[in-house]
Design a protein around this nucleic acid. Structure first.
Lengths: 202, 202
DNA sequence: CAATTTTTGGCACACCGTGCCAATATATTT
DNA sequence: AAATATATTGGCACGGTGTGCCAAAAATTG
């Protein structure tokens, strides 16, 4: 297998599978927004997407994953951005810049993002799972931030505190965000970050 | 009904029910610690506790609630403590003092607390539910902290950022805590709070 | 076209959580 | 103490999620 000479990152099949998953997610999100997350069964989503129930669970491990799965990939991208920041920079600012990629993503399609946030905020289990994904990001960021703080073992707790607090700021900014509003998500995020300001920079 | 003249807060039956719930929780926690949260079914817990499956769900709405339900009550108590702090005090410090009640609770029985933390940290859904409960605390604390910040509507986001960041510090301190260790939970929590220090005090 | 591999769909199953109702235990009244 | 009311329990059936297993269909390859 894998006889094709060119394998540019994603294989051909993976691309197709991702497209199908995206399509399922789109129709599911519409249903969630209309009838509430708990008011929609997997059978409903499957038949509305033209696939069987069994096949649905091959694209998404969980019903929650429809909403949350996309988040997982961002962890790596945030880490990349933070890695690219100058070494001496204030860690708090580096983290803030890392989240720019999320801000851009929301700004690219504010209505869709708002709909997703609406669904998430209306369902307790989804809020929890969102934060759970953020914890995965925190684990990703851990070593890099600890390194920037000097790598002393005593600094591990400090690094974790900064990371998790920055994620708390992100969650708060997202919760306070609605698309056609006065302030953009970026500004809200800035305001949250300004409220907390760590003392040390390196 | 309720003919008894003295009704000291909790009715007599409620006390009994709470005791039964505590007993169920104790046996369940033992099982969780041994076989993992997902490796124990509700039927197992019920029969080990000498009750029927149906009755179990009258004491706990969810299997997760065995581990998490106790947390809910702390929200009110934390709020009480924060309310009792002097009005001009640095909000960051007020929040820190609010969590003293949790520190005390852990210090009272570090082994039990450690076991609970072990079970929680080993199970994704439990981590998520723990955070869910913390969000409830945040909602409790919201008005009081906003009030201390001056009640201007613009300060709502700032208040939420402080609250959620402080909860992030709590989570980090708990995650870094193991009973027979060098530093107590209180010291870990202090370290986390010191890493983040908000600029304004009122 | 034929052969292989992947994808799909259809069961059956274990588990969680809930509504309903009859049986049992507990408390209250006479 | 007997009778009545009330609360608790247990059993049953049901809808929902998620998974293992295997055969049918579809796509890929020679």
């Amino acid at each position: 297998m894998q006889s094709s000479s060119v394998a540019p990152g994603r294989s051909l099949r993976t691309i197709k599978a991702d497209a199908v998953a995206a399509s399922i997610a789109a129709t599911a999100l519409d249903l969630f927004d209309k009838k509430g997350f708990d008011g929609v069964t997997v059978d409903e989503i499957a038949s509305a997407s033209g696939i069987s129930r069994r096949s649905f669970f091959r694209y998404f491990a969980t019903k929650e994953d429809i909403v949350v799965a996309g988040h997982a990939a961002f962890g790596e991208r945030i880490l990349e951005i933070v890695r690219a920041r100058p070494q001496g920079e204030d860690v708090w600012l580096s983290l803030r810049r890392g989240y720019d990629i999320l801000v851009d993503n929301v700004d690219r399609d504010p209505e869709a993002a708002a709909r997703t946030m609406r669904v998430i905020n209306a369902t307790a289990s989804l809020r929890a799972h969102t934060i759970e994904k953020h914890i995965v990001w925190a684990v990703c960021l851990g070593p890099e931030i600890a390194h920037r703080l000097g790598d002393a073992p005593a600094r591990r707790l400090e690094a974790d505190a900064l990371i998790h607090a920055s994620l708390a700021c992100l969650d708060v900014a997202l919760a306070h965000f609605t698309p056609g509003q006065d302030a953009s998500l970026g500004e809200k995020l800035d305001a949250a970050f300004d409220a907390l300001r760590p003392v040390r920079s390196r």
